[in-house]
Structure formats: structure tokens, C-alpha cells
């Protein structure tokens, strides 16, 4: 097994774990953590791709590296925005559940708009 296969399988496993966590963890914060895990798995995927494309003098194809750096920053922004929303939701509603169906039930509060 080469390093590409080892880390490639590691990346795929991280993706699987992240997906599972994103689906089954009830707290939004845990979903955000799982999303970060998922993201890092996908970034590793780029790393594998870049490692395979290593050319003489360059250990890792710089294009996927640049894409990953952009991706990491975007993922961080997503995390920050989600956390801010979550904290504000907790502040406003006193809970952080995502499962409420109140907004669409036929007899919802008419003051909502």
C-alpha cells in the first residue's frame, strides 16, 4: 500500500463518518462538527489527487493545494456563520433543536410572517 492509498482510504472513511454524524447527531453543534470532519475528508481527497500528480521538484501538485486552502477558509466561514446562528437561536428560543415543525403547521401563529 502506498501512502496515497492509505490516506485515500482515510479520507473516504472521514467522509463516511462525517456523513453519519451529520445525519444522526441531534444537536446542531454536533452537526457542525461533523460537517467539519466531512470537509476535512474531502480536502484530504484533494491532497491525495495532488500527491499523485507530484512532478519533478514539486512534492504535491500546487493547484489542488490552492483549492484546498480556499476550501478550508470557506469551511471556516461556514462554521463561524453556523455557530453565530446557533448561538442567536439559543438566545432567542432557549433551545437549539432543529426538529420543530411549527412554522409550517396549518394553525401557526398568525403574527409570523
Amino acid at each position: 500500500m502506498s501512502s496515497v492509498s492509505v490516506f485515500g482510504l482515510c479520507a473516504a472513511a472521514a467522509v463516511g463518518l462525517g456523513l453519519y454524524g451529520l445525519i444522526t447527531n441531534p444537536q446542531p453543534l454536533r452537526k457542525i462538527v461533523a460537517f467539519n470532519l466531512l470537509g476535512s475528508g474531502v480536502f484530504l481527497l484533494f491532497g491525495i489527487v495532488g500527491r499523485r500528480g507530484a512532478a519533478a521538484g514539486v512534492g504535491n501538485d500546487p493547484v489542488p493545494q490552492a483549492l484546498v486552502i480556499t476550501g478550508i477558509v470557506v469551511a471556516f466561514s461556514a462554521t463561524a456563520l453556523a455557530i453565530a446562528l446557533l448561538l442567536r437561536l439559543f438566545h432567542a428560543a432557549g433551545s437549539t433543536t432543529l426538529s420543530s415543525r411549527a412554522p409550517t403547521s396549518p394553525r401557526s401563529d398568525p403574527s409570523g410572517g
Binding site: G47, I48, R51
Partner: peptide
Amino acid sequence: RLDAVDVALTE
């Protein structure tokens, strides 16, 4: 280990 030090720094 993947020789992507720029990413390692960012990560």
C-alpha cells in the same frame, strides 16, 4: 506527509 506544507500550515 503528503508534502503539502502550505495546506498543513492552513489546516
